[in-house]
Simulated assay, not measured.
Amino acid sequence: MVMTGIFDREDGRARHASPELIGRGWESARLDSLLERSRLVTVVGLGGVGKSALAADAVERVGRTGTTVVAVDMAGFNGVEQVFHAVGRSSSEALLLVDNCDRLPGPAAAALSRLLEARPGLRVLITSRRRLGAADETVLPLAPMQLNDAVSLLELRARQLGTPLPDNEEARVTAGRICLRLDCLPLALGLAAGRLPDRGPRELLARLSERGGPLGLSGVGTDIPGRHRTLRHCHGWSHELCVAQERLLWARLSAFGGTFTRTAAERVCEDEQLSRPEIATAVDGLVGQGLLEHVNERPELLRMPRTVQDYGAEWLTRLGEETRLLERVLMWSRGLL
């Protein structure tokens, strides 16, 4: 789908910011700065982290300056022809938003590099779960929300659904635990809020605490993309984007229950299917999609978001490797590997 004039206005005023932008002031300012200095900016991050909302907010501000804005949603396409078509209809001074550019990073990078060379007045903003890899690309990683902001978003969504959370300390603690269980992902929090009319916060937390519980959270409505209808669909989309070694390593790393080192990942996961060099490359690939996180900005320390771990654990069981990997993690923890 190619969209122009995408910015809703009422009485000449800009629309209100998306609730997913709660607490995103620094990221919004950073994105504005990058768009002023770079002609190709990619917002990358885990599925459901709010990349599209952040990008839409930024291009709305650009649109208010009189710059032509063209938006292309790549989610349902397998080619880049619509990008050329969209830009061909725009003016010489334009901002192109290419949303959900997940499946075609290589072809898209080549196509956009040619466009930028041919159109000196063009700027491009990309959202993707991984970087394009273009030589002139500037990347803005988008992390999950801070806990306090995530709780505020959950409370807001609950009020919008007519089921406000109780105003007491127990409810706030429960809300915080729900947010942590869902990795403070805006998508997940919206799905969780949709379950509150049927069950209270404590019952919801109990359901989410079950193994794989968050993956079954579902949304309803024709406006929800298929890849966002459940967290299982969301992480499944990321799983499809991974190469074979990344998928296998994702499953195996799910056996770690918390923080681990790159060295531990190599010792526990290495075998004839995954060599140590392949593990090192796959770790970088998973980090690049937000499926692994650096702990305290230390490259050697890693953790897997809990819902990502849930999805990987399902695949580990499906592959028949659960017992073996859990045993190897135990051996590593005791210094036997």
Rank of each mutant, 00 (worst) to 15 (best):
N148G: 14
E266N: 10
D198K: 13
G76R: 14
V72T: 10
S333L: 11
A280M: 06
L274D: 06
E240K: 12
R298Y: 02
L35M: 06
A158M: 06
E321I: 08
T261S: 09
L153D: 01
E117T: 14
E270Q: 14
A94D: 07
A75S: 15
L325N: 06
G312D: 00
A171V: 12
A17Y: 00
L189G: 04
R130C: 13
R64L: 13
S218G: 09
G257R: 12
S91I: 11
G236S: 06
L205F: 09
C179W: 00
G221P: 00
E27R: 03
G79F: 12
I22P: 07
C184I: 07
A135G: 11
L147Q: 09
R276F: 05
D284G: 12
T65N: 07
R195T: 05
G190W: 06
S18L: 06
D99W: 02
A58M: 01
R232C: 11
L156K: 05
Q245I: 12
G258D: 13
P166W: 09
N168G: 12
V329M: 08
R89E: 15
H294T: 10
E169S: 14
P120W: 02
M331L: 15
G76Q: 11
E81W: 13
P144Y: 01
G216Q: 15
T261M: 05
A14M: 11
T42F: 08
T127W: 00
G176D: 07
G176W: 07
D32K: 09
N100C: 04
V87P: 10
R177V: 09
E169R: 15
R298H: 05
N296C: 11
D32A: 15
E314I: 05
S52W: 04
A118L: 09
R157M: 04
A150K: 02
P164Q: 00
V329I: 09
C234P: 08
L302G: 01
E270W: 10
H239Q: 12
T261V: 01
L182A: 03
E327P: 11
R328D: 00
C184K: 03
Q273Y: 15
H235L: 15
G88N: 08
R37G: 11
R232N: 12
A265C: 04
A71M: 11
E137K: 05
V83D: 08
A143T: 14
A158R: 01
R328F: 02
F7H: 10
A110F: 12
N148P: 13
L231T: 02
A171D: 09
G285R: 09
E27N: 04
E169M: 13
S209V: 11
V72W: 00
H294L: 10
V59G: 04
R129N: 02
R130W: 09
F7N: 06
S28V: 07
H16F: 12
S218E: 10
T4K: 13
W315M: 11
V308Q: 05
R227V: 15
D99E: 09
L40S: 10
G212S: 03
V44Y: 04
P197K: 03
L112C: 10
K51T: 01
H239S: 10
T307I: 02
A53H: 01
H85Q: 15
